[in-house]
Design a protein around this nucleic acid. Structure first.
Lengths: 361, 361
DNA sequence: CTGAAAGCGCTTACAG
DNA sequence: CTGAAAGCGCTTACAG
């Protein structure tokens, strides 16, 4: 049936037109399911295409219809940190799922920082390799966003509902709306139930917009729940950074009894190094991780964490981008808020402290 | 200086030819650094290109020179497992580094299995989206390899020095040669020094070629070192699978005192669940992980592991593929063998058992 | 409903 | 060293 030519001699639309006995134009119409050909002709053309295993040349299509049929994902992050983040592979998997339905390819690059990403994005756009891009980990002042809005590159970013973005609404930027308040409220309620009254948070770098969003949510949520905003120490997602921040917190006159970490590496490191830090978990210190991964499950005690469905988020971003490209865009999409997964790292009630950690099987 | 046109009106070679006062052909020659234009003309053309911020349209170039200027990476693995593997992001980062030097883009897809990957690869090739591909985690009987050799798609795979591959040598398959013997010999020597005499290995799925290579190396190395081949239990890289395999081993009449795991998830899970398994680590059971990641560092005790430089491996694969595409291929590249990183999970000497685990700070 | 023709933006022999 | 021309494989008005 399907007998692809051996050795790279791939058929062209001309071959299928000839085989079907029609002009190239008619073949093209039939192949693209456009009006202007009879049902019989369409069927013959489709059969010929199947017969020869024909697929349109991406380059030829791109050249004539001025679309790349590809989108880009430029991940700007240190490779060492990246390896510890399940996030991106899951995002890619989610995006792929919907991109494939419209035969759109995904170009990917991994570069150390945002400036390098700008270079890649510029090149992709100038060479017409992509029709749009997805940007992750947006900075407060992000050179990628400047480039992209300056050039008019359709793009999808994640942001808060009330966050200002250049070209808001009229532009080419679509937004996956993320809510940080609800998940943090859940975390705080969970800790309050267990008797904690002094909380702290160890955040990611303050340059990230999502860090700022969490900052704001944290202030509001803790003020509402405890009558006073609880402390935040800025760190950098690394094991060492999380450890230092925690040491600083524990050295306070009135140290927190529970700490929420913006990612899982910092939380898991603190749990692993609890003896060096001079605390028991959860008896002296309850730990919550802001991202859930295998690190939280394998820690001992296992770590209570906020989980999100990154694959679905990725699918949503891709859908948003495709809509934007097709001009049929709802300009934003509300993401499911992250959800609290309770494990052993916050223990039972704080008092009596003798209650110890729940049994682990 | 560089003033890209706003709103997507990107300049073409025609614009730069006009600005430089030459023909499109001369402009093309100058831009591609080919002979046939005077130094003065070349300089004027280049200046014009810079002035307009011109970059060649990838589609147009591809159409005329029949090259996609892109390569593909099709990762075939369950998304859940994938998130736990730092491997792929590092591979991408490494590949990107060298691909960028020749303005070659990377297409990426994440699909659940090899059959799905075949579909994507076929589409990429038929649509002329890629000039070649990198295949990872080759199966003993891999449909991707069949497709790729059948179609004549240039590709790079990882294999053993003595491994048979279709189209060997004359074909389009280049090989990153991996040696499993040396690293496993190091592991076994390390365990022997500590007094272990009954070893076992929990492997990944036997369908993978790298599993087979490790099987062979394991048999040879253990036979040579201990006078008898040591046992292997096949698992699937998952936490649950590793746990079950370990339980089976511990139930033996003469259970092993040291187990080598083909990845880090299984090793880290066993360490985390040691109490449920009824063993102390390292006193009763020494643990070695076949891949090194943050999981090994955060485990308690931290896990001795085989580490490799995936970024460099990725760069090597990309280089190999570019060479293959340019017809200047040395058909294989020897990868650095993985290297043993000693941590606490194998303890000191096995006897006396009272020696306990080394202090951790 | 169908065919002949121009065009997308490059590259590449082929003459001057 | 330089220019005019054809061609890569599609799509898309434009006539029949």
């Amino acid at each position: 049936m399907n007998r692809p030519a051996p050795g790279g001699a791939r058929p062209t639309i001309r071959d299928i037109a000839r085989l079907a006995g029609v002009s190239k134009a008619s073949a093209s119409y039939a192949l693209n399911d456009l009006p202007g050909v009879s049902a019989a002709t369409r069927e013959r053309v489709l059969a010929a295409a199947r017969e020869l295993g024909w697929r349109p040349s991406a380059a030829a299509r791109s050249l004539s219809n001025a679309r790349a049929h590809a989108v880009g994902l430029a991940v700007a992050r240190d490779v060492e940190l990246l390896g510890e983040e399940p996030y991106y592979m899951r995002l890619v998997a989610g995006m792929e799922g919907v991109l494939a339905t419209e035969s759109v390819s995904l170009l990917m690059t991994v570069v150390p920082d945002e400036t390098a990403a700008v270079g890649v994005l510029h090149r992709w756009w100038a060479e017409r390799r992509v029709d749009g891009v997805v940007l992750t980990d947006l900075l407060v002042d992000d050179p990628r966003l400047e480039l992209v809005t300056g050039l008019g590159v359709p793009c999808v970013v994640r942001a808060g509902a009330d966050e200002e973005l250049p070209g808001g609404g009229a532009g080419t930027v679509a937004v996956s709306v993320e809510d940080e308040r609800e998940p943090l409220a859940q975390v705080v309620a969970h800790l309050l139930e267990r008797g904690h009254r002094r909380l702290a948070r160890v955040s990611g770098p303050s340059g990230f917009r999502h860090t700022r969003r969490r900052d704001r949510a944290w202030r509001e949520v803790t003020a509402a729940a405890l009558g006073a905003e609880q402390e935040v120490v800025v760190a950098d997602y690394t094991a060492r950074g999380g450890l230092e921040a925690t040491r600083a917190l524990l050295a306070r006159p009135h140290p927190p009894t529970a700490v929420v970490y913006d990612n899982d590496v910092m939380a898991a490191t603190v749990v692993a190094e609890r003896r060096a830090l001079g605390v028991r978990v959860p008896e002296d210190l309850a730990v919550v991780a802001g991202e859930d991964s295998i690190l939280c499950r394998l820690a001992d005690p296992a770590i209570t964490a906020l989980r999100r469905d990154v694959v679905t988020d990725g699918a949503g971003s891709a859908r948003l981008l495709l809509d934007l490209l097709a001009g049929r865009a709802p300009r934003s999409l509300r993401l499911e808020p992250r959800e609290l997964v309770v494990r052993a790292s916050c223990g039972g009630a704080l008092t009596p402290p003798a209650a110890a950690s729940p049994a682990r099987r």
